[in-house]
Design a binder for these strands. Structure first.
Length: 740
RNA sequence: GGAUCCGUAGCUCAGUUGGCUAGAGCGUUGCAUUCACAUUGCAAAGGCCAGAGGUUCAAGUCCUCUCGGAUCCACCA
């Protein structure tokens, strides 16, 4: 039993993994300079995140990297982390809430600094965990989306876009979350079905149906369908309506948006608080009357209802309408879709806020063209249709977020002449929250310096009709008094430029476009489409050739993992117990990229058994390595050997085909079947006696086919394969130096 | 309303361009055991591949429809 000291009877990942990873780091195996370039940019996890099961799917990228390395490429995987704007601030605010505080207790600078500290304290953790999973990334090149050079690039892009007319500022209706305190893009909204009362209100000569009676103070017209005979005579007229605040007159317009069959066929138009009404308002040149402020409360235009939150206001309005006999009936079972915040789940308030937008009409054209021409390919293929469909309907992209954590929009507004319409909130020297127009605050004795020091948020009122002069710049302009925009960029505005901030200048000649972008299918529209857009705009080139989409990692029952359900599986826990190889393999084995990936302990155990099997096959061959030749090779065994060689040849051919077609699951399944049920169960059993008795030829053949299979398995189970390789080929060898 | 995916063993799911007796993991049952491995081996049970029709020499795979489930986009006064 010579040599067995190297190989215990069990594969023990706990002993081996760390050593193996260190040897890769120490010997510079994380990258390779040899061969044609192959490049992947790692999707940056949130900087404050720690590893969750979903990150396990990054294994797919590691498989690409390792497979390509073995195929002779200079594969390079560049990692990074994202500041993740709103996501992170949301987490931080929950943290604040536990201490009984809110963001309103801090100036935006203090809030930013605090979040920065918070993120720093929690960052870096995930890289250690990625290493435990064996990821072969060039950690030294990590990029954080608030790094100096990233800021420079992102701001340069904004400047270029602004100069070329792709950026505009407008008071446009946006989805605003009064709880989270920011506007959101269409993508960040979720539609949920809900049953709400539908109120039929008496409205002058009409009855109209609405679920939002509290917005009636903002009505600036009533609409009917142009073909609706019932109401034809009213179109173009003004009608007199008795409301809660007394009598008023309102215009009747004809618009095709009205569904004659719904309700009474009459709709109230509230341009300031409904996206459709906003559009209708534009068509008919209606006044925009804003009656709900961004804190979610009704304003002074609503008389006695001012100060009430939307929900309370609705109750009170309904009660008062009832008293006045202005409600004809209430349909209590009206089912409709409500738009809610994807983050906190609360109802979104469509409202008018000055926002920075990107005009996407011309920018998306080359994106659509590149995808249609398959310059960028998708795997699985069906996502091509999905992203094209999404690009077709993509509207202008609102990129401002009313939060502190992120990249502040580099715009300065001229104060002089505008002091009565630049509204802001700040924390004064005494730590008190103050708000008002600059003029009002100055009159109260505050200096501009004090205001700026404690600044929280600013907005310019009546922006669209009378734009304020602004300068795009990071530094404050020298002449005159200016105040900087307090909004930050949507985090996708910066992460969308990920391919523009990760490579070194000269690598854009050799490694761009990059080869593969592997990511979660959910963020296809948020991220992938925007990376293509920015890359085509700035570099006139696609950012990557292939987009590999994987799906959510779910539990045994197919349920999404969530803390509230209590079904969260901690990957590191599984790695501790069964090894990283088993964990990785369990995410790949028997799964397919289009569908959800169930992660169960049972499956990891199954894969652990597989790793142990591979180990023991090696152990058997190793133990018999030093048997002296008895020079007896019965010919019956030679037939078996020939059959084995033939079978192996076919296996490898299939394997390469599957790998090159990104069918990793099937490639792993193929080797699993071959190595276990053909190689071990059949051929070793058949050849065993010969090997033990010194049939050198048989032993050598088994060994070479086994080692070949180790290489084939290496992209999936890197630790074990490397450890066994070192047993056979020596401590200084590495499977990563081999080729397939 | 537009689009996409799924329905295969008790459970979770694989099944490339249609091609031999439909597979895996886990589970179940029986047998084996000083063997490289009990984290094992051998064997077994378990499937009208959702249903109906069609194309084909040949259909789990392609087409149509029905039923059931999921997702994306748009809309909903």
């Amino acid at each position: 039993m010579t040599g067995v000291a190297h190989m215990d009877s069990k594969f023990q990942p706990q002993i081996i993994e760390e050593k193996v990873y260190k040897s890769w780091e120490k010997n510079g195996r994380l990258t390779s300079a040899k061969g044609k370039p192959f490049t992947i940019l790692m999707p940056p996890p949130n900087a404050n995140a720690s590893l969750h099961a979903g990150h396990g799917m990054y294994t797919v990228e590691d498989i690409f990297i390792r497979y390509k390395r073995l195929r002779g490429y200079a594969s390079l995987w560049i990692p990074g982390t994202d500041h993740a704007g709103f996501e992170t601030q949301f987490v931080y605010e929950k943290h604040l809430a536990k201490q009984g505080k809110s963001r309103f207790d801090f100036s935006r600078q203090d809030l930013y600094d605090n979040i920065f500290k918070f993120v720093k304290e929690n960052s870096g953790l995930i890289y250690g965990q990625f290493k435990r999973l064996g990821f072969l990334a060039d950690w030294g090149r990590s990029v954080f989306t608030l790094d100096k050079h990233v800021l420079e690039t992102v701001i340069a892009t904004f400047k270029k876009m602004e100069k070329e007319g792709y950026i505009y500022k407008d008071e446009y209706i946006v989805n605003y979350c009064t709880h989270c305190g920011t506007s959101l893009s269409e993508l960040e909204t979720v539609h949920v079905e809900r049953v709400d009362p539908l109120y039929y209100l008496k409205y002058g000569p009409f009855v109209l149906a609405t679920v939002r009676p509290e917005t009636k103070f903002g009505d600036t017209a009533v609409a009917v369908h142009p073909k609706d005979k019932r109401y034809k005579k009213w179109v173009g007229q003004e009608i007199e309506v008795v409301g809660l605040l007394g009598k008023f007159k309102i215009k009747v317009v004809a618009d095709e948006m009205v569904d004659m069959k719904f309700g009474t066929g009459v709709v109230k138009i509230t341009p300031a608080h409904d996206p459709n009404d906003f559009e209708a308002g534009k068509r008919h040149n209606l006044e925009i009357k804003r009656i709900i402020n961004i804190d979610g409360r009704l304003n002074e235009l609503t008389g006695p209802y001012a100060g009430l939150k939307v929900k309370q206001a609705r109750e009170k309005v309904v009660e008062d309408l009832k008293k006045k006999g202005l409600i004809e009936k209430i349909d209590e079972n009206y089912k409709h879709a409500v738009t809610v915040c994807y983050k906190c789940g609360r109802d979104l308030e469509p409202t008018i806020i000055p926002n920075w937008f990107i005009k996407v009409k011309d920018l998306k054209k080359p994106v659509i063209a590149a995808i249609n021409k398959e310059k960028v390919k998708f795997f699985p293929k069906r996502f091509k249709k999905q992203i094209l469909q999404w690009l077709e309907v993509m509207h202008d992209w609102p990129i401002s977020r009313q939060i502190a954590w992120g990249i502040r929009i580099p715009v300065w507004y001229l104060l002089s002449g505008n002091e009565n319409r630049i509204w802001l909130s700040f924390i004064d020297k005494k730590g008190e929250f103050k708000k008002g127009t600059v003029k009002e605050l100055k009159n109260q004795g505050y200096t501009l310096t004090e205001i700026k020091t404690g600044l929280q948020q600013m907005t310019v009122h009546n922006y669209t009709k009378d734009p304020v002069r602004y300068v795009v710049s990071v530094e404050e302009p020298k002449e005159g008094e200016w105040i900087q925009e307090t909004d930050t960029f949507d985090t996708w505005f910066s992460s969308g430029q990920w391919p523009l901030v990760t490579l070194k200048e000269d690598e854009y000649k050799t490694r761009f476009p990059t080869d593969v972008m592997g990511t979660l299918a959910d963020i296809l529209p948020f991220w992938v489409s925007r990376m293509i857009m920015f890359s085509l705009y700035i570099k006139k080139e696609i950012p990557f050739k292939l987009v590999y989409l994987w799906s959510k990692v779910v539990d045994a029952k197919g349920q999404k993992m969530s803390k509230s359900k209590g079904n969260v599986i901690n990957p590191i826990d599984l790695v501790d117990r069964y090894g990283a190889d088993a964990f990785r393999a369990s995410l790949i084995f028997g799964t397919s990229p289009g569908s959800n990936i169930p992660l169960t302990e049972a499956k990891v155990i199954g894969m652990r058994n597989f790793t142990n099997k591979i180990w023991n096959i090696g152990r058997f061959i190793w133990m018999n390595r030093q048997n002296a030749s008895l020079d007896s090779s019965p010919s019956a065994q030679n037939d078996k050997l020939a059959a084995l060689k033939k079978e192996f040849k076919e296996e490898k051919k299939k394997y390469l085909k599957l790998m090159d077609g990104y069918h990793f699951s099937r490639a792993l399944g193929l080797v699993y079947e071959f190595i276990w049920h053909r190689f071990a169960d059949y051929y070793i059993e058949q050849l065993k006696d010969g090997v033990i008795n010194g049939n050198i030829e048989a032993r050598k053949s088994l060994e070479s086919i086994y080692l070949e299979n180790l290489k084939m398995l290496h992209p999936f189970i890197p630790f074990l394969t490397e450890a066994v390789w070192k047993v056979f080929e020596g401590e200084t060898s590495s499977i990563l130096k081999e080729s397939l």
